[in-house]
Design a protein around this nucleic acid. Structure first.
Lengths: 343, 343
DNA sequence: AAATAGCACTCAACATCAGGGAGTGCTAGT
DNA sequence: ACTAGCACTCCCTGATGTTGAGTGCTATTT
C-alpha cells in the first residue's frame, strides 16, 4: 500500500494541497500546471493525479471536477511535504505583548493566549489550563462571610486561586478559623492538591483527630475546599471560523458550536492530546473532536513554573493553513512555557 | 398618528404576531381566518390588514406575500396585547434546582442561571454579574508565591474573590505581609471597593504614611489589588439561536457572534438596561445591541445580599416568544434575588 | 355602511431545459 | 515516457414556464 512516491508525484500532491488550502475549490490539472509552472502537460499531471487518487490521497467530488485532498493526503502533506513558514517578527511581538499585558495571573494570560492564537491563525484558539489538582498546595485560608458562611481560599504554587463558599452549621469564632488555617497549612505543605485531598481523608480517621473537634471541623471544611472544580478551557475566536467557506452551510456549524458549549466534554476529548510532547496534529477524523465535522486540531503542551502541564492549540477546518499554523502553535507553546517559568 | 385601534383590529394584529412568532413565515389573510376561527371572511381581514400596514404595524416583504409585524407592531403587541403565560411548575423547579446545584459562589450561580435561562427560553441567556467595585470590602490578604511575587486576595461581602499576582521589587518577609494585611483591613473596613480605592489614594499622601515605609508598600500593593478588572458577563446558549430560521443566513450570524466576542463592549451597551426596575423589553433597533441584527432583548435586574445590582435576561430574534420569555425573565430575576439574599 | 364574494393580478418558488466550461479518461502519436 | 487530441461528463448559469398563495379592487349582499 505505502508505495514510494516519485518525486514528481510528491510535487504535484503538494501543489494540489496548497492550492486547495488557498482556494477551497477542487483543483484541476490545468490549475496545477498554471500556478506552479511545472514543465509538464496537463495530461501528464492528470495521469499522476489518477495515481494519487488510486492511492487514496485525493478524491474528486464528481467526475468532471478537480481533485481534493483526502485526510490521508493531508497527512502525507503534513508529515513530509509541508514547508513550514517561519513565525514572523511581528507575530512574535504581538504574541509577547499580548501575553504580558494580560497581566493578572495564570488564567488571565492563558485566556489572552487563546485569543491571540485565534487572531494569528484566523481559526479558533484553544487553551486548556494546567490541572489545578496536580499543582502544589501553597496556602489555605478561611474568611468569615456571614454568620454561617465561611469562604475557603485555596492557593496553589503557580498562583492559581480556588475559592469556595461553605455553609457551616455552627458559628466559627475568628480565632478558630486562624487555628484551623495553621493546622491545615502545616498538614498539606508540599503536597499536590490531589495528594492533599487524600491526606485529608486519611487524617480524618486518625485517633488524634477524632478527639479534637477543632481539627475535625477544619478537615471537614478543607474537604470541601479541595473539591475538584474541573479544569478550565478557553476557546476563543469562534466567530472567525464563520469566515471559512466550508462552514457556509449552517448545519455543520451547529455541530461545532454545540460541541464547544459543554466544555466538560471537550476536556475529556482533549486529554489524550496531553500525553505526547511537541506539536501534535490531528486531521479530520483523527481529531478527538467528532468525526462529523471535518476539523483539524493542532496542539502542543506547555509547562508552568510548578511543572504542571497545559495544552494549547488551534482548531480549524481540515483545509487549514498548516504551514503557518504549526509553527505558530509551536512557538506559542514555547513562549508560554518560558513566560510562566520566569522566577 | 396613534389612532385608537378597534377591538377587531387588535385581535387580528395579535393573531398575526403570534402566528408569525410560531411559524416565522409571513402570514396571510387565509391563515388568520383558519387558525383563529374569527367569524370574518378573508376579504375583511385583508382590509384590516391594509389598515394596520398603513399605521406602520405590519409590512409585507413583497406584494403577494402575507404580512410580517414591524418593530412598532411588536411593541404594541408586547405593550397591550400579549397574554403572558405562567411559568410552569416544572420550569420553576428546574430553575431552582440548577441554581442550588451550581453551588460554588456567586459567579457559579450566575453562570448556571445564564445556562438555565437559555434552555428554558431556547434563546441565549445573559447575566451581568453585579459590579464588584460597588460591593463592600470584606478582607484583603497577601500570600507569598515566589521570592518576588505576592498574591493579593481581595474578598467582598457577597463572597466574590478577586486575586492578583503582583511583582514586588524587593523581598517581603512574612511578618510584613501580615502586618500590611492588618493595617489595610482596618483602613478599608466598611467601604465599598471603589471607595476603598479612593481611600488608598488619599492615604498615600498623608504624612504619617510618607515616613512609614511598611505602610507605603502596603498601599502600593493594595493599589494593584483593587485595580478594576471589569465586570463579568455570561452569555450562554449561543448554539441555540442557530436553530432560529432567521439566522439560516450566515451573514447575520456573524454579526451577532462578533458582537458577543468582546464582552467589554457588550457590557457598555447593557449599562442602560440597569437603570430601570422590573422587566425591560427592547425590540429590534431599540435594543442596545446593534441595529443590524434584528434581535430583541428582555432583561431584569436582580440584587445581592449586599445590595449590589446585576442584570439578567434573554436575547433572541425580534420574532421571540414574548409571552413565555417575559415571565421567565421576571421569575428568574426574583428567584435569583431571593436566593442571593438568603442569610 | 359594513361585510363579503368574486376576480384579475403579482410575485416568489420550483421545476425544466439548453448552452458553456472546466475537467476527466482514453488513445494514438511523438 | 510524455503529449496532443478528442469525446464525454457533469456542474453551473440563466432563461422560461408553471404553480399557488396572497393581494387589491369592485360589485354585491346584508
Amino acid at each position: 500500500m505505502d508505495v514510494e512516491l516519485s518525486n514528481r508525484s510528491r510535487q504535484i500532491l503538494e501543489a494540489i494541497v496548497e492550492d486547495y488550502i488557498a482556494t477551497a475549490e477542487p483543483v484541476g490539472s490545468g490549475s496545477v500546471a498554471r500556478r506552479h509552472a511545472l514543465p509538464l502537460s496537463t495530461a501528464t499531471i492528470r495521469n499522476v493525479m489518477a495515481n494519487l487518487e488510486e492511492m487514496g490521497l485525493l478524491t474528486s467530488p464528481h467526475t468532471s471536477a478537480g481533485r481534493v485532498p483526502t485526510e490521508k493526503g493531508y497527512r502525507l502533506y503534513v508529515d513530509s511535504l509541508v514547508a513550514l513558514r517561519q513565525v514572523s517578527r511581528d507575530e512574535k511581538k504581538l504574541l509577547i505583548r499580548r501575553c504580558r499585558d494580560a497581566g493578572s495571573g495564570l488564567l488571565g494570560i492563558l485566556r489572552e493566549t487563546s485569543r491571540t492564537l485565534s487572531s494569528l491563525s484566523n481559526y479558533m484558539g484553544l487553551v486548556v489550563a494546567p490541572s489545578f489538582t496536580e499543582d502544589v498546595f501553597r496556602h489555605i485560608e478561611f474568611i468569615r462571610i456571614g454568620t454561617h458562611k465561611v469562604l475557603a481560599i485555596l492557593v496553589s504554587s503557580n498562583g492559581t486561586v480556588q475559592n469556595r463558599l461553605v455553609e457551616t452549621g455552627t458559628e466559627f469564632p475568628l480565632s478558630d478559623l486562624v487555628a484551623m488555617g495553621n493546622y491545615l497549612n502545616e498538614l498539606m505543605e508540599g503536597l499536590t492538591i490531589s495528594q492533599a485531598r487524600q491526606r485529608i481523608q486519611e487524617e480524618m480517621h486518625t485517633e488524634k483527630v477524632q478527639y479534637d473537634s477543632l481539627m475535625l471541623r477544619a478537615l471537614r471544611l478543607s474537604e470541601q475546599a479541595v473539591f475538584d472544580e474541573g479544569d478550565e478551557v478557553f476557546v476563543e475566536g469562534q466567530a472567525r471560523i464563520l469566515d471559512q467557506p466550508e462552514f457556509n452551510d449552517v448545519g455543520r456549524m451547529k455541530d461545532i458550536f454545540r460541541a464547544f458549549e459543554q466544555k466538560g466534554l471537550l476536556l475529556k476529548l482533549l486529554e489524550r492530546c496531553m500525553s505526547a510532547d511537541g506539536v501534535q496534529i490531528y486531521i479530520g477524523s483523527e481529531s478527538p473532536l467528532g468525526q462529523s465535522a471535518g476539523v483539524s486540531l493542532i496542539t502542543s503542551r506547555f509547562v508552568t513554573s510548578s511543572n504542571t502541564v497545559g495544552l494549547l492549540g488551534v482548531i480549524g477546518p481540515t483545509r487549514m493553513g498548516y504551514s503557518s499554523v504549526i509553527p505558530i502553535v509551536d512557538y506559542t507553546a514555547r513562549l508560554v512555557s518560558r513566560l510562566l517559568a520566569e522566577p
